[in-house]
């Protein structure tokens, strides 16, 4: 596998997620699409850390190890924060469902535009 193919997979998943966030009616599906976007970023970050030493960079063992670690640490932080985000999102969806018996974002339109 080359870096390009992994990056293309990441970009495609990101685009699918963005489409889902902007087009889906159910708040749960929107949160799932958001998760897709975050995971696309994770794929990209890990791919960069695995494959890419940017041109002209010092490729000693230390520098490479650091480069490798940074991308993976980035991914771990993103996974953790995304989990918190979804937990909060689902809690708010439940609050909305209790007051209105619907989880569709298109029905959340009490305010004027």
């Amino acid at each position: 596998m080359s870096l390009e193919s992994v990056l293309i997979v990441g970009a495609a998943i990101f685009a699918i997620g963005l489409y889902g966030v902007l087009s889906k009616r159910s708040a749960i599906t929107v949160l799932m699409s958001l998760e897709l976007m975050f995971n696309a970023v994770n794929i990209t970050a890990v791919a960069f850390s695995r494959y890419a030493a940017p041109s002209g960079m010092d490729t000693g063992a230390d520098a490479l190890a650091r480069l490798l670690l940074t991308g993976q640490v980035f991914a771990i932080f993103i996974i953790t924060v995304a989990a918190a985000e979804v937990a909060l999102g689902v809690a708010i969806v439940i609050a909305i469902y209790r007051s209105r018996q619907t989880a569709f974002v298109t029905d959340a339109n009490q305010m004027r535009h």
Binding site: F14, G17, L34, A40, T44, E85, G89, A108
Partner: peptide, 22 residues
Amino acid sequence: RSSESGLKFLILSGISSALLLY
């Protein structure tokens, strides 16, 4: 209204975080 405001903020701030991260 308050829940709606919270959900909108959460989703849009999530989208913006995803774009920023990318």
